[in-house]
């Protein structure tokens, strides 16, 4: 069995083949999306959801804390971005910071309530808090615009020092989102391979043991929750720009469940890249099966059920099996020889 906590063969350097492929796909997407019959906006949507899913998997896969209410933080980020543009000032960085800050704050409060739980009770508490935020978003009409949400959120200019760029069309905004995503991916990669990341994985594997070798498990779980909510908030800020609006729908239990499905189907429990596969699969299903039949969600749901039954490691686990079934290449030994520090 493969696991998220296997030691990376190159000691945690992010420059792996998978990373290369990922960057290549992101950087070339604007050039082939339209020729193959898709559209520019889809690339951006996928990039944003990848950011959300990877940040979510820090909590779900790495720390083993199964949140079923994570859509709330995406939504809070989106609202914060929109409210900042509409009520404070028109500024890209300010808006994104507001999105991260709001989601982080919400995560910190909820995290304080849920961090001494795990398993089903943790899932349940996150559902309850998610529903509270969702409800509030619908009912606080004067702030959030109720069921319709905040409309007409602008896409402010990108200002870096003296440089000022208009990123209001889908293609340039895609580039911006991609750069943010890449920075976030590198940060997450760093995080999960650093001592902090390994400790939080230790907590997933055995919370009791982690406590009895001296880790403040509550604090680490809380921090992970907060960081993961912060990433969701960043994704939410970008989402508000992409959609030019913010609305309660993304905070519903349905959406929170969908992100869990994406991460699991992709293989977030066994691979850093799992959530990426899951997001891709979901949007391909939505746009391609969805183009053929109205009932695409039925087929996606069936696929998900079968996946949980026969291959809970998801697509990433499936790829791993396929790769090990192929004629063996030079096997990567895990051991002192492969250990960079001892070379």
């Amino acid at each position: 069995m493969i696991s998220l906590s296997d030691i990376p063969a190159r000691g945690g350097s992010p420059f792996t083949r998978s990373m290369g492929l990922f960057v290549l796909l992101l950087l070339t997407a604007p050039f082939w999306l339209e020729p193959i019959g898709l559209y520019q906006y889809l690339g951006m949507e996928i990039a944003i959801w990848i950011l959300f899913a990877l940040g979510f998997n820090l909590l779900f896969g790495y720390a083993g804390l199964h949140s079923f209410g994570h859509g709330a933080y995406l939504g809070i980020g989106a609202y914060a971005f929109g409210l900042f543009q509409q009520n404070v000032t028109l500024n890209l960085w300010g808006g994104l910071l507001a999105a991260i800050a709001a989601a982080t704050l919400a995560g910190a409060i909820v995290g304080a309530f849920v961090s001494h739980r795990r398993g089903i009770y943790f899932a349940l508490m996150t559902i309850a808090f998610g529903q509270v935020f969702w409800f509030a978003a619908i009912k606080l009409h004067s702030v959030t615009g109720g069921e319709d949400g905040l409309l007409g959120i602008p896409r402010p200019n990108l200002v870096v020092g003296p440089l000022k760029l208009d990123i209001s069309d889908n293609r340039t905004l895609y580039w911006f989102v991609t750069i943010v995503l890449l920075v976030a991916v590198l940060a997450l990669w760093r995080l999960v391979n650093a001592p902090f990341g390994r400790v939080l994985q230790a907590i997933r594997q055995n919370e009791t043991r982690a406590r009895f070798v001296g880790y403040n498990v509550w604090l680490i779980k809380w921090l992970t929750f907060v960081v993961s909510a912060g990433f969701a908030g960043l994704a939410g800020g970008l989402f508000a720009m992409a959609q030019e609006s913010a609305y309660p729908d993304v905070m519903s239990l349905h959406q929170s469940g969908l992100i869990v499905m994406m991460v699991l189907v992709g293989g977030g429990l066994v691979s850093f890249w799992g959530p990426v596969f899951g997001v891709l699969l979901y949007f391909i299903a939505r746009d391609i099966i969805g183009g053929l039949t109205e009932t695409w969600l039925l087929w996606f749901g069936l696929m998900f059920v079968i996946m949980v039954m026969v291959r809970p490691e998801g697509l990433a686990g499936l790829f791993h099996v396929l790769r090990t079934c192929l004629p063996p290449g030079p096997r990567k030994a895990v051991g002192p020889a492969a250990h960079p520090g001892r070379a």
Partner: peptide
């Protein structure tokens, strides 16, 4: 889910002192 030696490293007090470090690798 991890190797034998990481079980032990995680318990070392010197490693525990690094538990909030995000700039380096475990090994």
């Amino acid at each position: 889910d991890t190797v034998v030696i990481e079980n032990v490293i995680l318990a070392l007090p010197d490693f525990r002192a690094l538990s909030f470090n995000v700039t380096r690798n475990v090994f």
